[in-house]
Amino acid sequence: MLIKILGPGCANCAALEHATHAALAQLGWQAAVEHVTDYAAIAGYGVMSTPALVVDEQVLLTGRVPQAGQLADLLAAHTQQ
């Protein structure tokens, strides 16, 4: 699983990365978490409000930072598909 955090580096982007690590720890999963800060790349995903969460090249979340528990549910639901 490859997780990307999209965002130019604002406080919310760091908060989302933090929440993602917490969610992964809750699930007991290992995954690479990358940071995408390039504006063209961010826009390429069709994302306009940052921060955004991309898992295996699929946008799961834009424009907000959920709680770690909600994030864990989102990741679990994604892998079940």
Binding site: A43, G44, Y45, A52, V59
Partner: peptide
């Protein structure tokens, strides 16, 4: 920039 993907409305 080409827009790909189906962003999830928050």
């Amino acid at each position: 920039t080409t827009l790909r993907g189906q962003p999830v409305p928050p």
